[in-house]
Design a binder for these strands. Structure first.
Lengths: 144, 144
DNA sequence: TTGCAAATGCAAATTATTTGCAATAATATA
DNA sequence: TATATTATTGCAAATAATTTGCATTTGCAA
């Protein structure tokens, strides 16, 4: 994992460039699925730069506030963090192996309009996750 | 709030009829929006029948396992419980006052089929919540 | 290079939830 | 109806995730 410096990027958000923040950004760029604060912390510990778990929480909190990261929590599970997606997308989560696949093509635009008319709410956001079993886990389940 | 006895109903699920369970069922039938375990506990304390908070957790856990109740957690918030909806529906949540409106007419059937084809997942479930501002809160926000 | 605010580390606090265990209550059955 | 059996409850203590207070360190602007 190449060591990068995100000073400019961080300063743009009014944050100082620290080795901990650079490290976390680097980790976040390299993970393919959302990770918990603890998982990120454990990855961080493997590098030279030492980081404290509360610092990880604090950094992720600030990142989330600035929309650098997205914080989600699946059904009954702890929060996970990932870089904030640049395009609108949702998550498809395997209930067995917890693998996450990102899917585009959100079908909710029209539905939201209908609901707004019905309810007088002004809808600003939604949360959609799909749950199922990935191909591998389907096989494993079928074999038992 | 009328005191009812759900003995038959509970036995059907292989559960004994206890005053705590009857009380919780009664509370659940009477609430219009999902409540946290603690909120339910506080309502329970107002009745004659005393209940312990861990008992509330244990009952709600069992109810949820039996699909008597639905356990959800909104963005970053603690779990809430409600009677398991008899029809498929989703929640529309006011970001200001936390009011919840239930909406039917889920638009995801077709979308799920498309995603299944794209991804080889077998989709068994989804979670959809809409967030926005209710009419009252829109007014309050506009007035500031 | 110095000064100051922001960021960090550490330990301790909080919050929601769960668990162990002894006491109690509900049901089945004698 | 009494009794045995087992589930359920209450209580206190444990756990797990996350947050906070405070002293120290660090980044950056002047």
């Amino acid at each position: 994992m190449e060591e990068l410096n995100y000073k400019e990027y961080l300063n743009k958000y009014g944050m100082k460039s620290t080795k901990q923040r650079n490290l976390l950004l680097n980790i976040l760029k390299n993970i393919k699925i959302p990770h918990t604060a603890e998982q990120i912390y454990l990855k961080a510990r493997k590098s030279d730069a030492l980081v404290n778990l509360s610092t990880v929480y604090r950094i992720l909190e600030k990142f989330t506030e600035k929309k650098i990261t997205l914080r989600t929590s699946f059904m009954d599970e702890k929060c996970v963090y990932s870089l904030f997606p640049t395009t609108h997308q949702h998550q498809l989560i395997c209930l067995r192996c917890k693998k996450v696949i990102l899917i585009g093509g959100c079908p909710l635009k029209e539905f939201e309009k209908t609901v707004e008319k019905q309810t007088d709410f002004s809808i600003v956001n939604h949360r959609l996750e799909l749950y199922g079993y990935c191909r591998d886990c389907q096989k494993i389940i079928a074999a038992n």
